[in-house]
Amino acid sequence: MNQQIKELEREGFLVFGGRWLKKVKISNQEDLWPVASVRVVRRMSPGIIKVPNLEKSHF
């Protein structure tokens, strides 16, 4: 998968991903399920919020 992500980046895209646990209820029984989300957007998308690089001295 790393190779495909690198190819997307070469083509001008960025790949964002996240993972969390979601509570689901099936037949009156609750459980936590792992959920993952992947989003691919153009590098220049106005929806991307740029965060300045933080150096270790700021922590």
Rank of each mutant, 00 (worst) to 15 (best):
Phe16Arg: 11
Lys6Ile: 12
Val15Met: 10
Val41Gln: 11
Lys25Thr: 13
Glu11Leu: 13
Lys23Asn: 04
Gly12Lys: 02
Met44Val: 06
Lys50Leu: 11
Val24Leu: 01
Ile5His: 05
Phe59Met: 00
Gly18Ser: 12
Val38Asp: 02
Gly17Thr: 13
Ser27Glu: 10
Lys6Ser: 13
Leu21Tyr: 12
Leu8Gly: 01
Leu8Trp: 00
Arg10His: 14
Ile49Tyr: 10
Ile5Asn: 06
Leu14Lys: 09
Glu9Thr: 13
Val38Arg: 05
Val40Glu: 07
Ile49Val: 15
Lys25Ile: 12
Leu32Gly: 00
Val35Leu: 01
Gly18Phe: 12
Ser37Cys: 14
Asp31Tyr: 03
Glu11Asp: 09
Glu7Asn: 05
Leu54Arg: 07
Val40Gln: 08
Arg19Ser: 13
Trp20Gln: 05
Glu11Tyr: 13
Trp20Ile: 05
Trp33His: 03
Lys22Thr: 15
Arg42Leu: 15
Asn53Asp: 05
Pro52Ala: 07
Asn2Thr: 14
Val41Cys: 11
Lys56His: 07
Ile5Thr: 14
Leu8Glu: 01
Phe59Pro: 01
Pro34Gln: 14
Gly17Arg: 09
Leu14Ile: 05
Lys23Arg: 10
Ile5Gly: 04
Asn53Gly: 01
Met44Asn: 09
Leu14Glu: 05
Asp31Met: 06
Arg19Ala: 14
Arg10Val: 12
Ile48Met: 09
Ile26Tyr: 03
His58Ser: 11
Lys25Glu: 11
Val15Lys: 07
Asn53Phe: 08
Val40Met: 09
Glu55Trp: 10
Ser27Asp: 13
Arg43Ala: 14
Val38His: 01
Glu7Arg: 07
Val24Ser: 02
Asp31Trp: 00
Arg43Trp: 06
Lys25Met: 07
Leu14Met: 04
Ser57Trp: 03
Glu30Tyr: 02
Leu21Ser: 11
Glu9Val: 14
Gly18Asn: 11
Val24Pro: 01
Arg19Gln: 13
Met44His: 05
Pro52Lys: 07
Glu11Arg: 15
Val35Met: 02
Glu7Trp: 03
Val40Asp: 07
Val24Ile: 10
Ala36Cys: 15
Lys56Tyr: 03
Gly47Gln: 05
Gln4Met: 03
